[in-house]
Amino acid sequence: MIKSQFDGLAILLLVGLCLLFGLNQVVVKFGLEGVSPLMQAGLRSIGASVLLIAWMLWRGEKILRRDGAFWWGMLLGVLFALEFLFIYMALNLTTASRTTIFLYTSPFVVALGVHLFVPGEQLSKVQAAGLLVAFIGVFVAFRDSLDADASLLGDSLALVGAFFWGATTVVLKASPQRHQSPARVLLYQLVVSALILPLLSWLLNEPGIVSLTPSVIGSLLFQIVLMAFVGYMAWFWLLSHYPASKIASFTFLTPLFGVLFAWLILDEQLTFDMVGALLLVALGIYLVNRPARRTGKIV
């Protein structure tokens, strides 16, 4: 059953996941010292698939089952893999800051998709405005680093990546996959991407695995265990219990946490714009999740 409003557990879990996802942006940089991007994502999916299958077997949950959701699961896996393909292609052509801004148009894709295809999850005008305010907050956070190294193709590829990210959520909520357990939903995406991403890495002539230093191995373990297994499992649990567009509004916190961790761990610059950006994102999240006012006449 979908709950219309977040409770304390959901808010705590969402903020924690955004912290985890933001930290992952920094951890990936350590992994790139020894493993190319798509291969790194592929190894993450392979390792997390093994953990997830072991978890499902331990709990007695069937891995293969005739439930009418197989092809929808395969579609989700392909969308999941394409998302990473276009994001990494964008990063090769434009700056990380520009990629981040265009990537976080994804909540708008989710909002429009669930409005059209998922009954009962439509956003009001105030909630739509909240998404826009939160997006402006992300823009403010990254505007100082929007330099001249721009590429129309790179920006367009980032937008395509955002579309596939949002489309994954919409297909999940609008298809029979919404009745699956979070583990089964995640299994399709991990297994399909585990097959596709290493192949794409080879086709695009990535160097693959270059060096497995302790920091690179630590980065891979973090991504496999905490990000792809624990983090995504919790994410899909949330999607099975709460409105997708409201969950998507919290993702605007992720790049801000990413900047914060980059400052703490990598000693990257932190600007005063971050304070204003955080306030805007918080205001946007509040507007999206504010309970609707009930109006009525006393008869």
Results as ranks from 00 to 15, higher is better:
L153K: 10
A69P: 03
V133S: 00
P107W: 05
L238D: 03
L266K: 14
Y286E: 00
G218P: 09
A148P: 00
G42R: 02
L13Q: 14
L253M: 13
G166N: 07
V171D: 08
L52R: 01
L91G: 11
F142Q: 12
M39S: 10
W263I: 06
L264P: 07
Y286H: 05
A248G: 06
G34R: 04
I63R: 04
L159T: 13
Q189L: 06
G284E: 02
P176A: 11
L131D: 02
V126H: 05
M89V: 14
W72P: 09
A292L: 14
V110L: 10
G166C: 06
Q5A: 05
S151H: 01
L32M: 09
S240H: 06
V138K: 02
S145E: 15
L12R: 04
A277C: 04
G296S: 10
W235F: 13
L79E: 05
E121M: 09
F80V: 14
G120V: 13
G208V: 00
I101A: 11
L159W: 06
A54T: 15
F229S: 06
M89S: 14
S201Y: 01
T295R: 15
G161H: 02
G22S: 08
A111R: 04
A41P: 04
P198S: 07
V259S: 12
L12C: 09
A194N: 04
V118Y: 04
L270C: 08
I63W: 07
S181H: 07
L190V: 06
E268A: 03
E121F: 12
F164E: 11
S201Q: 04
W58F: 13
I247G: 05
S45K: 00
C18G: 04
G137C: 08
F257K: 09
E33M: 06
